[in-house]
C-alpha cells in the first residue's frame, strides 16, 4: 500500500489556478523528484503537503490516515493542522535556520518543545544527525558563521530530528553557489540509502535521474508527465516535456 496518496489537489490564489488537479502516490522509501519550469506550482504543491497552504479541492492520505479531504465539509482546526504537519518535513530553498540558536540548538529546539524524549535522548539524536550530515565540528556555531551548504545541511538535520514520514525538499541547492551544491546533494543521496521517503523539487537533472524512483514533470499546475527516470528523461511522451528537458540541457 502506498505511504502517501495525493488525490486531485487543486489550489487557487484568487483567480489564478496554481494547482489544477494533482494526483500521485508514493511508496515507503521511494524518492519522487519534481521538475518543471518556475511558476508551474511545485512549491505550492509542497506547501499543501506541509499544510502551509490548504488545498481547495482534493485529499491527502498518509498511511491509513486521511489528513485532509476537501470533499468533506469540516474545516480543520489549528491543532489538527499542526498534527498533520508532523507527518511531513520541509527543507526550504533559503534554509530558514533560527539565527539565535546554535547548530545543535536548531536541531534540538522542536523535539524539546514537542517533548519527543528526555533532553539527553534529544541531544544524542541531534548529535547523531549532525554527524550524519557531516557537521560534528560545528555544533556550537551560529547559522551566520556557516556557509550556505552547511546551513542547508543543518536544516536537513533539523527536519530529520522529528522523523517525518515524508521529507520534502524545495530546490535545496538553488540558493547555493555551484561549488556548494555537491555537499547537500551528497547528504540527500545518503538519505536515500537509508530508505527515507522523499519528495525533491530540483533543477539538477542529473541528480534527479540518479536519486529518483519516480520523476514528475509539472507544467502550469498539472502533471504533464510522470514515470521512472528512464521513461521521463530518455523517452518523454509529451512534447512539452521534450522541450523543457531540451531547454534544461541547453543551460549546461
Amino acid at each position: 500500500m502506498a505511504l502517501l496518496i495525493a488525490e486531485n489537489l487543486k489550489k487557487n490564489f484568487g483567480k489564478t489556478e496554481v494547482l489544477k488537479g494533482i494526483s500521485f502516490s508514493l511508496e515507503k522509501g521511494q524518492v519522487l523528484a519534481i521538475i518543471g519550469s518556475s511558476g508551474s506550482g511545485k512549491t505550492t504543491l509542497l506547501r499543501c503537503l506541509n499544510f502551509l497552504e490548504l488545498p481547495d479541492e482534493g485529499s491527502i492520505t498518509v498511511g491509513d490516515k486521511v489528513l485532509i479531504d476537501c470533499a468533506k465539509a469540516e474545516t480543520l482546526d489549528d491543532e489538527t493542522i499542526r498534527q498533520n504537519r508532523l507527518h511531513f518535513g520541509l527543507v526550504f530553498q533559503n534554509f530558514n535556520l533560527f539565527p539565535q540558536y546554535s547548530v545543535l540548538g536548531n536541531v534540538t529546539l522542536a523535539p524539546t518543545l514537542l517533548k519527543k524524549g528526555t533532553p539527553e535522548e534529544i541531544e544524542a539524536n541531534a548529535r547523531r544527525l549532525l554527524d550524519q550530515v557531516g557537521l560534528s565540528d560545528k555544533l556550537e556555531n551560529y547559522p551566520h558563521q556557516l556557509s550556505g551548504g552547511q546551513q542547508q545541511r543543518v536544516a536537513i538535520a533539523r527536519a530529520l530530528a522529528l522523523q517525518p514520514e515524508v521529507l520534502c525538499f524545495d530546490e535545496p541547492t538553488s540558493a547555493l553557489d555551484p561549488e556548494l551544491t555537491g555537499e547537500v546533494l551528497r547528504v540527500i543521496r545518503g538519505l536515500k540509502n537509508r530508505d527515507t521517503t522523499m519528495i525533491v523539487v530540483t533543477h539538477e537533472m542529473e541528480f534527479a535521474r540518479e536519486v529518483a524512483d519516480v520523476v514528475m514533470y509539472m507544467a502550469d499546475g498539472v502533471i504533464e508527465e510522470m514515470g521512472t527516470p528512464e521513461q521521463v528523461f530518455d523517452n518523454p511522451q509529451s512534447e512539452k516535456t521534450r522541450s523543457f528537458l531540451h531547454g534544461a540541457h541547453e543551460k549546461f
Binding site: L52, R85, F92, N96, A110, L114
Partner: peptide
C-alpha cells in the same frame, strides 16, 4: 521574515511557541 514562522510551523510548533522561542529574541 515569513520563513521563520513557516520553519516553525513545519516542525509542528504552535503559534505561541513560535513567537516565544523563535520570533521574540530576533
Amino acid at each position: 521574515s515569513k520563513g521563520q514562522y513557516e520553519a516553525g510551523y513545519v516542525l509542528g510548533l504552535t503559534k505561541q511557541q513560535i513567537f516565544r522561542k523563535i520570533i521574540l529574541k530576533q
